[in-house]
Structure formats: C-alpha cells, structure tokens
C-alpha cells in the first residue's frame, strides 16, 4: 500500500485514491497516419519493464482527478519523485 504525494493536492494520500496508468512519457506520434506499422506498434504496445527506476503516470482518481508522473523504484517500491504532466523527471536511471 503506497502513500502517494499528489502534486496537485499538495499532500500524501493513500494508494486507494489513485489509479496507475502505466509508463509515462510515451509521446503520441504527431502524424499517426504516416507511421509505419512498426513505429505504431512500438508506440502502442512496447513498454519498459525495468528493474529499478520507472517513470509512471498516475491519476488521483478519488481526489482531484488530475494526472501526474511518478518515478518509482520497482524493486524497493520507493517513490523517488512525483512531478506534474509536462514536467521532466529530475531522478533518472544512470544509463
């Protein structure tokens, strides 16, 4: 059971109030019609499954109904950072 800081409400809330919506920072191709099937498939289906830092998108569903990003360690379940949509993460995996 996570304890999640909502950057819009400005405080921690119980996980029950949130929905996880998967990997963050997946840009919808600006011109889908000119994507190859392969490119479209990458966008549509290919997801990271990292051991360690993962950038995810969540929604404060039973709350302010706002989406936000979370950087989470998939091993320890630590939440390293939350940041608003449109912002970039400051905690990233060493590449």
């Amino acid at each position: 059971m996570f304890y999640i800081y909502c950057p819009h409400c400005g405080e921690h809330r119980e996980e029950e109030e949130f929905h996880a919506k998967g990997q963050a920072h997946l840009a919808r191709p600006l011109d889908p019609d000119n994507c190859t099937d392969h490119e479209w498939g990458e966008y549509l289906y290919m997801r990271k499954n990292p051991r360690g830092l993962h950038h995810e998108i969540w929604i404060h569903a039973t709350g302010c109904r706002k989406f936000f990003n979370m950087t989470r360690d998939t091993v320890s379940y630590e939440i390293k950072e939350v940041y608003k949509i449109g912002e970039r993460p400051s905690v990233v995996a060493a590449s």
Partner: peptide
C-alpha cells in the same frame, strides 16, 4: 501518453 508536450 505524451506528457512532454508543454501545455500551450
């Protein structure tokens, strides 16, 4: 979802 797009 793209959230890199800065809201205009």
């Amino acid at each position: 979802m793209s959230d890199i797009i800065a809201p205009t």
